[in-house]
Amino acid sequence: MPSPAPSSAPLPAGQDRAEITSRKVVGLPERLDPADDSLSAWTQRYLDLAVRGVRSAEVTAKISRHLERFGAWISGGLGHDRLSAVTVREVAAWRDHLDAAGNSGRDGTAAPMAAATVNNHLAHLSALFSWITAHAPAGLLRHGDPTKQVPPLPLPAPQPRALAAAQVRTVKNIVDRIEVFHELKGRRHRGTAARSHAHARPLRDRVIVYLLFGTGLRRAEVVGLDLDQLESADPDRLRQTKKARLTGVRGKGRTSRTVFLGRDARQALADYLQSERPGDAAASAVAGTAAVALFLSAASIAARRPDGRLSPRSINTIVGEIGRLHDAQVPEADRKLGTLRPHDARHTFAFALSQASGHNRAELERRLGHANDRYLRLYTNPPEDIAASYIEDL
């Protein structure tokens, strides 16, 4: 049954659509049949009336994907998708299925899904059934909300992921020499002036790594930055000033904060803005699209977005490559990083900030854009070598 169009009735004066939907009081279009017993139909109504236009496009896509997985689980297991047939047993079985085989491995075989991701699926399903409960006719959910009696999976104790001081030093050493690793090598390039691969942007990658380690920005926050958020965007002034900053950095939960830039990030930004970004920005202009993003992908990449903005996944690639270069250069096993992730840089920054600020909670909240006690406590946990030194002589 096709999903009907959302209601177009005007909102009461002074009320915001996001506020109304969050309270689950949006009325259903009058032409809907309230007795319709279809999980897929109710899911589409929920997405149309309470998610699309209220949540970001990225979050909306994730919620839709999670609910689609539950719908497939019900239809595949029961042979139909009647909403009234969804019980606590079915929800619990779906949770356990995701926990055991919710992912696909590289070879296509089933693989476990992380407990936090499973719980995220359950949270989105619970929001759906809370909305349905508020709007469904009496008797449709005869046994009540089936998600309320299904507990989330226990989460493992969060582990500190901050790099040790020696590791940070060698990472920065690699980043300082990053142009060397991008140079074309081989017999036909010997005796010629050093030249980088066409897609390589070593100056951009350098500033991104320094920004992650020096500000604690999340990867989505990095790719979401626009040039006009940088004060100042003039390379010469960046090299001289000590108060350069990024304003209006958009974080989770529609938060916004100001981020100050350290010496390494300022110098690297100045080099990037002066030498690399202008060429990639000009390519966007030729294509008829303004390059407003601070960090741009190489103009030579065929699959480049029209505006040149990087994707969050590209930050993983950049940071992961730095980690691989680091481990190839470092012989000591206890200094190797394994897989380096953007969030490792965030943890490293947060621990250093906690130490420098005397564990000032307000400063951690302000600079990290995170007020959750669980994570703020995690950020103050030291790397293992520092933790071990605390008790060495006790």
Rank of each mutant, 00 (worst) to 15 (best):
A72T: 10
E231F: 03
G14Q: 02
D145E: 09
F260A: 14
A115T: 09
V180I: 13
A281I: 08
G53H: 08
K185T: 14
T133D: 10
V86T: 02
D107F: 10
R257V: 08
T348V: 13
A302M: 09
R195W: 03
A350P: 08
G186K: 13
Q149K: 15
G76Q: 06
L325Y: 00
D307S: 03
A9N: 03
L394R: 10
S357T: 11
A352T: 09
H347D: 09
A299G: 13
E19K: 13
D327P: 00
A116Q: 13
R204M: 06
V25S: 14
S64Y: 02
I178G: 04
W94S: 08
I315Q: 11
A165C: 05
V222I: 11
L184A: 13
A283K: 12
G191H: 03
L78F: 00
L269V: 05
Q240D: 11
Y375W: 12
R95A: 08
H370P: 00
A110K: 07
G77N: 01
G27S: 11
E68P: 02
V207E: 07
S22K: 15
P29N: 10
G105V: 00
L39C: 03
R237I: 08
I322S: 02
V91F: 03
L394W: 12
R177T: 05
F70T: 11
D334R: 05
Q240Y: 10
A303T: 15
S8F: 00
Q167G: 14
G262W: 06
A57I: 07
S300P: 08
G77D: 02
L78I: 00
A13C: 04
P112Y: 09
S196M: 14
E58T: 10
R201K: 12
S300D: 01
D280L: 14
H97A: 03
L296E: 02
R206N: 01
L184C: 05
V26Q: 14
L230P: 01
R201F: 01
W94F: 15
P112G: 05
E276M: 03
R254K: 15
R31G: 03
I301N: 13
L261Q: 06
G53K: 02
H143G: 03
F181E: 15
P12V: 00
V330S: 01
G186V: 15
G191E: 05
H121A: 12
V330A: 01
R142I: 13
A388E: 13
E321V: 00
T43S: 13
P10C: 06
A9Q: 06
T147H: 01
N372D: 15
G139L: 07
L140I: 12
L212T: 10
Q167R: 13
R204D: 03
S38Q: 11
T339W: 07
D176H: 07
E363R: 12
A111V: 14
H135S: 07
R219C: 07
